[in-house]
Amino acid sequence: MLWALFRRDLLLIARSPAIWLPVMFFVLVAALFPFAVGPDARLLARIAPGIIWVAALLASLLPVETLLAPDVEDGSIDQLIARGIALELVCAARIAAHWLGFAVPLLAALPVAGVLLGLDAATGLRLGLALLLGTPALASLAVVAAALTAGLKGGGALAGLIVLPLALPVLIFGVGSDVAGAFRLLGAASLVALAVGPFAAAAALKPE
């Protein structure tokens, strides 16, 4: 069942014309910073990990309004409940699909962003590993926020307000990934978010 749900979610993401939006957004934000702080290569290389993490965090929030709200509105969620499928399962599948939908293209675009910001190969590789470890937590938080704001006015902005403070640990451990232990802490933060996320999102989706 989990597999079928996951395949459906993935197909929906893959077929939507918005699939490239988070990646393009990510590269654009990375390209925006040299214009904002000046083209000094040393400064850019120093702040590049931070820029890339903030861009990734914002990119994970970009599709938040289409993650669950359409399924709540057209009754798909009600149908799944009526068939006796656990909402936790639905949300877990959605987290996995959202992660594949935004994090994998984002990792593919990382070299482009890295070149734009003058990142050296070793730092870029470490950053890629950190993103691989940390983005599942961002996907989980985005799905929780999508569940909390489904059907509310201004859901997108609201989701941003909800997720940003909660994503702070991931950001801190992600950017500090050159320090010993940061990878483990980042992995731990991701595991906690993945463990709690499906249950929190399902509780929020449950009809009253």
Binding site: V144, L148, L168, G176, A204
Partner: peptide, 29 residues
């Protein structure tokens, strides 16, 4: 929208789970 405010309650609980992690991560940072 009306209703029971379940979402806000869930957010408060998610926040309280996250609060010690945030506090620890900020100290580490």
């Amino acid at each position: 929208k009306g209703g029971e405010q379940r979402g806000a309650a869930i957010l408060a609980l998610v926040g309280v789970i996250n609060l010690p992690i945030i506090k620890y991560s900020v100290e580490w940072w």
